[in-house]
Measured scan of single mutants.
Amino acid sequence: NITNLCPFDEVFNATRFASVYAWNRKRISNCVADYSVLYNFAPFFAFKCYGVSPTKLNDLCFTNVYADSFVIRGNEVSQIAPGQTGNIADYNYKLPDDFTGCVIAWNSNKLDSKVGGNYNYLYRLFRKSNLKPFERDISTEIYQAGNKPCNGVAGFNCYFPLRSYGFRPTYGVGHQPYRVVVLSFELLHAPATVCGPKKST
């Protein structure tokens, strides 16, 4: 009989979020998941679920829940969905086509923008091939755009693969920082350890 609540607040209220190319993952297990707390949290810009209804989450049990978190621009949030393409979905964070879970995003301009620009948040701009679902690539190898080998030196046709967002408070909404948490639900042939409040007695 599990009684402790799942530590969703640790994920959602973290002081610093990860850059999207180096997205953070927390495994959540052996706890009671009260999703209504999240669902009623006012400032969400997006709360979209795939393969599961957000209002039914509290009735369900899962083997594991993974909480992935990172920061992207407002106009990139739409790429955090199954079957998407674009710089983020291709080179930074890719969801599987059969994704079961929820994508939760909110504007973090007050936290993550600075006058003069916040350059701490990076994304991958160049990559030889697209990421596989949930693949994480933190390499900083110089990207070779031409035929000539770069030998690890940036220059003509040789690019550092990461780019900084440089968030400023005055940017338009599409270019403002958004914090994103992706909850993915794993249902294995194993005992369920993460259940909603109704199922955990």
Rank of each mutant, 00 (worst) to 15 (best):
C150T: 01
A22W: 07
Y35M: 13
V194L: 11
N120S: 14
E10Y: 07
A46N: 13
T3E: 11
L57I: 08
Y165I: 03
S108L: 01
S164W: 05
S29P: 09
I104H: 05
G152D: 12
A42T: 09
Y178E: 01
V52R: 05
S19Y: 02
F185G: 05
K148I: 13
C31R: 07
P177E: 00
S113F: 02
P82D: 01
S129C: 09
N157M: 02
P177I: 02
H189I: 10
C150I: 01
Y66G: 02
N75F: 15
N40A: 12
A33R: 08
V20L: 02
W23N: 01
P149T: 06
F134D: 07
F44W: 11
E141M: 10
R73S: 15
R124N: 00
Y159S: 00
L125S: 14
A67W: 07
R168M: 05
V182C: 05
G116T: 10
K110G: 11
T100R: 13
A89D: 00
K198E: 13
G152P: 06
S129R: 13
G86K: 03
E76S: 08
G117Q: 04
V65C: 10
P191L: 08
Y35R: 08
K198N: 15
S108T: 12
D34E: 08
V11H: 04
V77Y: 05
L187Q: 14
C102N: 03
V65I: 14
K26E: 07
P7H: 10
L60V: 12
N30G: 10
F47A: 09
L183N: 00
T201N: 14
G83A: 08
T193M: 11
T63D: 13
V32E: 09
F134G: 13
A67P: 00
R25I: 02
L187A: 15
G166E: 01
P197E: 14
V180G: 01
N107L: 03
R136W: 06
Y165F: 08
N24F: 05
L187G: 14
K148T: 13
A154V: 07
F134W: 10
H175A: 03
R73I: 04
R179P: 00
G146A: 06
G86S: 03
N147E: 07
Q79N: 05
V115L: 14
N120M: 12
A145M: 06
R127S: 06
N30L: 06
A22H: 11
D34I: 05
Q84E: 09
V181E: 00
D112F: 03
Q144G: 07
C158T: 02
Y35A: 09
L5Q: 14
P177V: 02
F8H: 04
L95F: 03
K132E: 12
C61R: 13
T140W: 09
A145R: 06
P191R: 14
V71A: 05
V153I: 12
T140H: 10
G166A: 12
A190G: 15
Y171P: 00
S139H: 09
V115S: 10
S108E: 03
P161T: 04
G155P: 03
F17D: 02
A18W: 06
N30R: 08
I2Y: 13
N30Y: 08
K148P: 05
V173P: 07
K48V: 07
N92I: 01
N1P: 13
V153S: 15
S200G: 15
A154K: 12
H189E: 15
Y143C: 03
R16A: 11
I138A: 11
D97W: 10
F70N: 00
D9V: 13
A33M: 13
H175M: 00
A89L: 02
G196T: 12
N64P: 10
N75V: 06
N92D: 01
V180C: 08
K198M: 14
F41E: 09
I72P: 00
P133C: 05
Q176N: 04
E76P: 02
A67I: 11
Y50I: 04
Q79P: 01
D112L: 03
T3S: 13
V37C: 11
V194A: 12
N40P: 09
H189L: 10
S69L: 04
S78P: 13
F160S: 13
G83F: 10
S200I: 15
S19P: 08
N24Y: 07
S69P: 01
N120D: 13
S19R: 03
F47N: 05
R163N: 15
D97Y: 09
F8P: 04
P133I: 04
A42E: 11
F126C: 06
N64M: 10
V194G: 13
P133M: 05
V52Q: 05
Y171G: 00
V65G: 08
L183K: 01
G83V: 05
P43W: 07
A67Q: 04
T201P: 14
D34N: 11
T140A: 13
H175G: 01
K132G: 10
E135I: 05
A192D: 13
G172V: 00
G166K: 06
A192W: 11
S36Q: 13
N64V: 11
E76D: 15
P54V: 14
G116W: 06
D59Q: 13
D68E: 03
S78Q: 13
C6T: 06
K94E: 00
H189Q: 14
F12V: 08
R16V: 13
S36M: 08
G51H: 11
I104T: 05
F12C: 06
F45S: 15
D9K: 13
R163A: 15
A192T: 13
I88R: 03
F17T: 04
V32G: 07
G174V: 05
G116L: 07
V115P: 12
D9F: 13
V180T: 06
N1Y: 09
L131A: 03
Y143H: 10
D97F: 09
L125Y: 06
C158G: 02
C150Y: 02
V103K: 01
T170R: 04
R136N: 05
F41T: 11
P133F: 07
F70A: 02
S139Q: 10
Y21S: 06
V180F: 03
P96R: 06
K148F: 11
G83S: 08
G117Y: 03
R73G: 13
F160C: 08
R73N: 13
D34K: 08
F99G: 00
N40M: 09
S53I: 10
R27C: 10
K94T: 00
L162P: 00
G51I: 04
N120Q: 13
L183P: 00
L187P: 11
S78N: 12
D59M: 09
H175T: 00
R73P: 10
D98V: 09
A67K: 03
Y178A: 07
F134T: 08
N30C: 07
A18Q: 09
N151F: 10
G51F: 05
L38Q: 04
V173C: 07
F8W: 10
S53F: 08
T63P: 08
P197Y: 15
V153T: 14
T193E: 12
H175I: 00
D112I: 04
A190V: 12
G174Q: 09
R168F: 01
V173E: 13
G74Y: 04
R136I: 08
I80E: 00
I28V: 08
A190P: 13
G83D: 07
L188Y: 15
G146S: 07
F99T: 01
T3M: 10
A192K: 13
F47E: 05
Y93E: 00
L183T: 01
